[in-house]
């Protein structure tokens, strides 16, 4: 990496509309699984089982598309997020509440605390040079964490990728088919996986997860 990454000249900023999409805290957002009332299930449901499910709802989801060969852009990402863009296919980086997932050679998914979308977008628009796009997709997906001894058994019934630790280590991320829908799947621990699913398919995947985990026992974690 060049040790001289300061922007040489002012690049014409892309004239993109950035919008603070969140209302005041008085208005409670509804995650794609709001109707499933996971909080009540967490309180009233079983406390032991082979599969644990937790929704990380209402987070900030940003899709970044830029040039992985552009040093200035990579430096800008690091300035904004404090994380370097993962360049190897199917890898991710994580630091505190911030994480970046490689989705394609020119596409990454950034997760951050829910209230920070507008802040981060604004910073990007100031810091990031050149041709890129940044899209807030927070309302379009939700994050599920699947853990427990049998989490992998549920996933083997849902995705066709090889989940063996030797080929799917912690930190690996794949976009893949999930049952008859799709998901972005990342391994967070030996028995812990993260699923990012699309809003409109969330109910289908929720039904699917209940069905596939029934024999192992499903615990909803708050």
């Amino acid at each position: 990496m060049s040790d001289n990454t300061t922007a040489q000249e002012t690049v014409t900023p892309i004239k993109a509309a950035v919008m603070d999409q969140l209302p005041s805290a008085a208005i409670q957002g509804q995650s794609p699984l709001h109707h499933a009332d996971l909080d009540s299930l967490a309180q009233q449901g079983p406390k032991t089982g082979g599969v644990h499910l937790r929704e990380h709802k209402l987070l900030c989801h940003l899709t970044l598309r830029c040039n992985q060969g552009d040093e200035a852009q990579k430096a800008a990402v690091e300035r904004v997020l404090g994380l370097a863009l993962p360049l190897s296919p199917l890898t991710s980086v994580e630091k505190g509440d911030y994480s970046i997932r490689w989705l394609s050679p020119d596409e990454w998914l950034i997760l951050a605390p829910g209230l920070e979308a507008f802040d981060i977008e604004t910073k990007f628009r100031t810091e990031m040079p050149g041709h890129y796009s940044l899209v807030n997709s927070s309302g379009g997906s939700t994050v599920l964490e699947l853990s427990g001894e049998n989490a992998i058994d549920v996933l083997k019934r849902s995705v066709s990728v090889d989940l063996h630790a030797s080929v799917f280590p912690i930190g690996k991320v794949v976009s893949t088919t999930f049952a008859k829908s799709t998901a972005i799947l990342r391994r967070k621990g030996d028995h812990t996986f993260e699923l990012i699913i699309r809003r409109s398919f969330a109910d289908y995947i929720w039904l699917w997860l209940q069905d596939t985990s029934r024999e192992f026992g499903l615990v909803i974690d708050a």
Partner: peptide, 11 residues
């Protein structure tokens, strides 16, 4: 060639 691994045809 972009993800640098084998995947099933359904993808």
């Amino acid at each position: 060639p972009h993800c640098a691994e084998y995947r099933e045809e359904e993808e």
